[in-house]
Amino acid sequence: MNIIVLVKQVPDTTEMNIDKETGTLIRKGVPTIVNPDDLAGVEAALNLKESHGGKVTVLSMGPPQTASMLKELYARGVDECFLISDRAFAGSDTWATSKILSTAINMLDYDLVIAGRQAIDGDTAQVGPQVAEFLNIPQISYIESIDDYKDNTLFVSKAYETYSVKMKCKLPCLITTLSGLNTPRYMHAKHIFNMDAKEISMLTNEDLKLEKSVIGLKGSPTKVFKTSVKDVQKDTVKLRLSPEEAAQKILDTLQKEDGGQA
């Protein structure tokens, strides 16, 4: 099974602050990590390879320093890494990014594409599904477990808020993974010390040959109108309730405030 995993290098948001003046993230000096949902995707791909054979290829779009993350993924055991990097891609929103990624994927052999559900810096959860649309293959998002693979069919569980649904899909397809799907393995000492044998393949727009109108800021239909920081109110009450009880509680509270109008 040839598996392509889409991975993003993100700032470690647990160590991040927001500039209240501009409403943007202060990225300076913040360590970068492999996006957690994507790392689960890498682990899932390595597990599938170990049980069914094949190859795990990682694709990442980002600035040249993304190479450090790709080396870490080599050390975790992936077979090949591609870095898609070009100044022309800067400013791409999820639509343009998906266009770029799917064009690169189409240059490679694949049976399964795995993307993390969402990146912890943008939280859109749009890239995986959009890539599937551009590739014109079926997709299942929010995978919480991969249950089986036989006869070219993948059996998975898709998570909803309070329940999950078992689904199956013939390959090729795209799935998006949740970080809770598995526990990622550590880097392996042998892979680390054998790093010189591994190379990161670079892909630029000279390889992808995309029109300027569909990439970068120009090719991005998303327009950010305003970002703001939400203040946490100090009189927040924390309650541990089931979804049904929580709904009832909210309703009761609103009715009380509304004088029984709601």
Partner: peptide, 15 residues
């Protein structure tokens, strides 16, 4: 070197 740094990262995570 780069390998030492990566190995140190691995060790910290493992520990």
């Amino acid at each position: 070197n780069e390998k030492h740094r990566l190995f140190d990262k691995m060790l910290k995570e493992f520990v």
